[in-house]
């Protein structure tokens, strides 16, 4: 009798737990669900406040966004910029981080502090001087200019994130390699890098996401020829009229790579968040 009650109570407790998790997820994901739902609605159905009321699903919004290639082009720009930014930031950032983790040298504290602290500078501060500067050297509206701007906040992030990780890797492996006649760079490249590969994936993932999501620099430094996807998305809600359909369709498309990353690399992303935070 008593036993039955206890097991029933346990079952109930489990049920309550799962229901509360479900409610939590529903609330938290509601806006995202709404974006996806809206992207399949016609302009007139969007007027209905109840987001779950019956509507005729349509692919018109996606067609409109994709048909004239402009948005695909913008996605391409975003992709190229994010990939190159990631490569530069990770390669050079990891080298710098390695230097801090492995050597004691004159000025290492000051340089390290300056680089790490600079990550916290609000980008709005840098946007004006960066603009004026790039104007001087004719880098406005170029891939290279925007990539450099992204590197300016992503590389410090990479250093920030990989440094504690590197410090945790024992020196013994590289020392053995050095004794075997490997050069310093050889030891770094052949021994150290494979050891820290998981950390590199995390920092690469984040670098990609931050560059992919950047709005301010893209707004100020890039023009027609390399407009990135976020700028285009915000443009759907303007004087043009509320193109909620197009906005949500484009927004959903931008979310896709993020979904993929979040699902595959979840474990690494969480460890990365714990160390480096978010930009």
């Amino acid at each position: 009798m008593l036993n039955k009650d206890v097991s029933k109570w346990k079952l109930n407790k489990k049920a309550i737990f799962y229901i509360s998790v479900l409610i939590l997820l529903l609330i938290e994901l509601f806006p995202i669900i709404l974006v996806f739902l809206t992207s399949f609605k016609s302009q007139i159905d969007i007027f209905n406040a109840n987001p779950f009321s019956a509507f005729m699903p349509t692919l018109d919004n996606y067609k409109e966004v994709l048909i004239d290639r402009t948005f695909l082009n913008n996605l391409k720009h975003s992709m190229i910029i994010a990939l190159v930014t990631t490569t530069i930031s990770v390669v050079f950032g990891v080298m710098a981080s390695y230097s801090f983790a492995r050597f004691n040298f004159k000025g290492d504290q000051k340089i390290g502090l300056a680089i790490l602290a600079s990550r916290m500078i609000p980008p709005i501060t840098l946007s004006v001087p960066l603009f004026l500067l790039m104007r001087k050297v004719a880098l406005l509206d170029t891939y290279f200019g925007l990539i450099l701007a992204h590197v300016s906040f992503i590389m410090p992030y990479v250093i920030w994130m990989t440094l504690p990780f590197f410090q945790g890797i024992p020196k013994a492996y590289e020392e053995a390699a050095l004794i075997d006649g490997c050069s310093r760079f050889g030891a770094f490249y052949k021994i150290f890098v494979p050891l820290v590969a998981p950390g590199l994936v995390v920092s690469a993932t984040f670098s990609f996401l931050f560059s992919w999501n950047d709005f301010l620099y893209a707004l100020i430094l890039a023009g027609s020829e390399l407009k990135t996807a976020p700028i285009v998305v915000s443009g759907f809600i303007g004087q043009f009229g509320p193109k909620w359909g197009s906005m949500t369709a484009a927004g959903s498309l931008i979310l896709i790579p993020i979904f993929i990353f979040a699902l595959i690399l979840q474990k690494y992303i969480i460890s990365g968040l714990a160390v480096g935070g978010i930009d």
Binding site: F131, R135, A138, L140, D141, L219, I220, G223, S224, E225, I231, S234, G235, G238, Q239, F240
Partner: peptide, 23 residues
């Protein structure tokens, strides 16, 4: 043709026409 929402457009223009480069 580079088209922008009004507010971004003005900023873009300000930054471009005041320079010597003249895109």
């Amino acid at each position: 043709i580079d088209d922008l929402p009004t507010q971004s457009l003005t900023q873009k223009m300000a930054m471009n026409v005041t320079t010597e480069t003249g895109k």
